[in-house]
């Protein structure tokens, strides 16, 4: 369980990191190391050079940016977990973070690493897709952006160019009568999800659904949005039977993952249940009702 030899470079700034990546196609960025180091220990990854971005000044931040919250790529999960701005403006993310590994892995793991790694079960990938995040990256001295829904393209595969460094992510903030719901099924809370569901709603004064985002993670190759259900439920009172109908239809044709932990049929069935529960919780929390833990 020892990594193969490699060269180590601590990058002083993003462009230096990108230059190292451009110079060697087997060079890899190391952020929190909570996925990359185990992969290297198991020799599933054998980078020739590690480009350490942990000490790049100004790459770790959480700040309000117009109608969004902007988060720097090397911001650690534990910093997000404790942040007042995240708790207030990104309550869905605040709710999901305790499900990401353990305190000791959240102390090192970064949001940029989690997104770049693109595990189908990663809570941060589900958050980015559900909240319509926009990711920023730098490559060869140029800055570019990509929507979360275009970023994830397969299990552990993203649209990020090979010599690019993710620099930050912006999450639009919803204002008004907002509610959230998050549910996950796994072996233990700290383990990767078999299925997860995240929902954010905005209700009108009369309790009618003005806007809803429903995301499902770990069921398919990368987190998905239930677009048809969202369209169907907007403008309704989110009545339980209608929610179940809409969610069931939206998930009817998915190609669910199938592995030792959970069969495709199980994942599909649980996805429906969790998405319905998350919608119910989101509605209840927007109305200020108490949510019963299951």
């Amino acid at each position: 369980m020892k990594a193969a030899p490699f060269e180590y470079s601590r990058a002083a700034d993003i462009d230096e990191a990108c230059a190292w990546l451009a110079a060697d196609e087997n060079a890899r960025i190391i952020a929190g190391g909570q996925t990359l180091v185990p992969m290297m220990a198991m020799r599933l990854a054998r980078p020739t050079r590690l480009v350490d971005i942990n000490r790049i000044a100004g790459l770790s931040y959480i700040r309000a940016d117009g109608d969004a919250i902007a988060i720097g790529a090397t911001t650690r999960q534990c910093d997000l977990e404790r942040d007042a701005l995240v708790a207030r403006d990104l309550p869905l993310m605040a709710k999901a973070i305790p499900w990401i590994g353990h305190a000791a892995t959240r102390a090192r793991g970064t949001i940029g690493g989690s997104l770049s790694n693109a595990d189908p079960a990663a809570e941060q990938a589900l958050m980015a897709v559900t909240l319509d995040a926009v990711l920023n990256y730098r490559e060869a001295g140029k800055t570019a952006e990509i929507k979360a829904r275009d970023f994830f393209i397969g299990p552990m595969v993203t649209a990020l160019p090979a010599a690019a460094c993710l620099t930050g992510v912006r999450y639009p903030v919803w204002r008004g009568k907002i509610g959230i719901g998050f549910h996950e099924v796994n072996a233990r809370r700290s383990d990767f999800a078999f299925v997860s569901a995240a929902v954010q709603v905005e209700l009108g004064a009369d309790g009618m659904c003005k806007r809803i985002a429903i995301g499902v993670g770990a069921a398919t190759d990368f987190p998905m949005r239930l677009d048809s259900a969202e369209a169907q439920l907007t403008g309704t009172m989110l009545d339980a039977a209608a929610v179940k109908d809409a969610v069931t239809q939206a998930l009817a044709d998915i190609e669910a993952m199938d592995d030792l932990h959970a069969s495709a049929a199980y994942r599909k069935r649980v996805a429906v249940s969790l998405a319905c529960r998350a919608v119910a919780d989101a509605r209840a929390s927007a109305l200020g009702e108490k949510i019963h833990a299951h």
């Binding site: 990594a3 180590y8 190391i30 190391g33 220990a41 590690l50 000791a104 090192r108």
Partner: peptide, 13 residues
């Protein structure tokens, strides 16, 4: 001051 896993950090880091 924060508890971390020493097996997931390379010494130069």
């Amino acid at each position: 001051g924060v508890a971390v896993r020493a097996c997931l950090i390379f010494a130069p880091q």
